[in-house]
Design a binder for these strands. Structure first.
Lengths: 105, 105
DNA sequence: CTAACGCGTAAGGCTAGACTTACGTGTTGT
DNA sequence: ACAACACGTAAGTCTAGCCTTACGCGTTAG
């Protein structure tokens, strides 16, 4: 399942990262988030849209409200991508100890 | 240690992510990276500056060139931050299942 | 010494996107 | 029924930042 936008892009903005961090702690409604942030409610809606498109959050209607929560699948995808970076880096780091690899090209 | 800019911001841009991915595979010079990318060499320099400020890469002079490589410490910091998200999300996910049984579809 | 290479930085143009206000839709309570 | 609430979206403004060309500094080869 391909996401509309990369999770990296979604978590790039500071405000959006704050929203995500709050959702990590506990699910919230849109206005609940907006009340705790220095931006307007529509701005929060737009941020949530980006996070949703990235697969990082899911939403469910709850009466008049709409509760957003973190989507474990999207977070896992990001984690997997980062782990590839990590393992490759560690592998290169390990081989770099005994010899000094030079890359002229 | 605090970095000038968040690693999330540094990896937000697609071009910068490509540069980082190449450095994950093997250290490179600036022009080496520029040759493989559809942007100019100064653009690569500016991207590397952002990655360096975020603590994700380190550079070392090598003759006329300047070799950039991934900094394991910066990558580990990002990984740690993501792991916090992950563990918190899993904890909330687990209690959500225990308290309210998920209805099968 | 001089020329060429590799790199970083400055200055400017231009697009992406973060934010606002205004409005429309669906839901709940009176 | 109407009114209030929660939310999403449209339209427009404005800033951040990505990319370019032009230039200056250090390093190496001839």
């Amino acid at each position: 399942m391909a996401y509309a936008k990369s999770g990296w892009t979604a978590l790039a903005d500071a405000t959006r990262r704050t929203i995500f961090e709050r959702l990590v702690d506990h699910p919230s409604s849109v206005s609940g988030l907006a009340r705790a942030l220095p931006v307007s409610r529509p701005a929060v809606s737009q941020h949530l849209r980006v996070l949703k498109d990235a697969g990082l959050v899911v939403d469910a209607p709850a009466g008049k409200q709409r509760i957003y929560r973190v989507d474990p699948a999207g977070l896992a995808a990001l984690r997997a991508e980062l782990d590839v970076f990590w393992s490759k880096t560690m592998a290169a780091y390990k081989t770099a100890i005994e010899q000094s690899p030079e890359e002229p090209k």
